[in-house]
Nucleic acid binder design. Structure first.
Length: 275
DNA sequence: CCGTAACCCTGCGTGC
DNA sequence: TGCACGCAGGGTTACG
């Protein structure tokens, strides 16, 4: 599941390879993944465009093109963006191939077909669903301890779903939200407004810690995630709580529990994270 | 404002 | 061995 650290890793692996190249052709195998524009316009508009830079906002990856065009990807759960040579065999679930003038290609592969792609002018970024409503970036100056404290105080929702709410804070997904809560010793069902000042301060720190470690370890690979070169990450080896139901907490040996909160799995330690 | 659930989709684990 | 079934999950949308 590509969350902020995974998308950031893809960005960092693709940027040096793609920058300066131009798209020469688009092969679309699954039209539904492209939200804007229609597939014929998509092909027509992208051919000849030069790649200026790559950027990330939350879990959205944007390839900034000449003529103020933005090619935007959201990988959702199983989406992959891979840079490879045109000779590489085309694997199952390859939905889009963008050919480059170097003879290499950028391929979009997605087993579950949840990923989405937009090609829009930068003036129309607000037509990309979700993008304009994103909350602050966890590493942005605007995301401060005071901001978190203020926002949590007025929210009467449970802390776990709030951390997953991309309009609240951008980039956290199920893995890193659970890791941040465990490290801050906060029960995932605790009401946001009931967090103590100490807990809020700790959470502010641990959100950044788990994301930074995820980036340093080049992402978490359970099954599908790989970087822009097709390489798996290693952060899964360092997770303390996620996907460890029935196993002992690494801090206190208590058996880790999994519950459903708003339809999402939440892993936590009943001893370290009391309600 | 908040919670829940359905939806999109395929692979995989389980039970018969 | 094979089939049916349920689950997994990010984000959007609908509804109470």
């Amino acid at each position: 599941m590509p969350e902020l650290p995974e998308v950031e890793t893809i960005k960092r692996t693709l940027e040096p390879k793609l920058t300066g190249q131009s798209f020469t052709e688009a092969l679309i195998y699954l039209p539904t993944i492209i939200r804007i524009p229609g597939i014929e316009e998509f092909k027509k508009e992208i051919v000849g465009q030069k790649i200026k830079s790559i950027s990330r906002r939350g879990k959205y990856l944007t390839i900034n093109l000449s003529n103020n065009l933005a090619l935007i990807f959201h990988l959702r759960m199983t989406g992959r963006l891979i840079y490879c040579h045109a000779d590489e065999p085309i694997v199952k679930h390859t939905h889009l191939i963008l050919k480059l003038d170097s003879g290499n290609e950028l391929r979009f592969i997605d087993v579950r077909q949840f990923g989405r792609i937009w090609l829009v002018s930068v003036q129309k970024l607000n037509t990309v669903s979700g993008l304009k409503d994103l909350g602050p970036e966890p590493f942005d100056k605007k995301f401060t301890r005071e901001f978190l404290k203020k926002e949590l105080r007025r929210r009467r929702t449970r802390i776990k779903p709030l951390l997953l709410d991309q309009t609240f804070i951008a980039g956290l997904g199920n893995i890193y939200a659970d890791e941040a809560l465990h490290r801050a010793r906060i029960h995932p069902e605790k009401l946001a407004c009931n967090l103590t000042a100490r807990e809020t301060s700790k959470l502010f720190i641990t959100i950044r810690e788990v994301l930074e470690e995820g980036i340093n370890n080049r992402g978490t690979t359970f099954r599908d995630y790989v970087d822009g070169n097709g390489q798996a990450g290693s952060n899964q080896e360092l997770l303390q709580i996620y996907n460890r139901e029935g196993q002992p907490c690494l801090k206190c040996k208590t058996t880790i529990v999994r519950i459903k909160i708003s339809g999402r799995s939440s892993y936590f330690c009943p001893s370290c994270q009391k309600e």
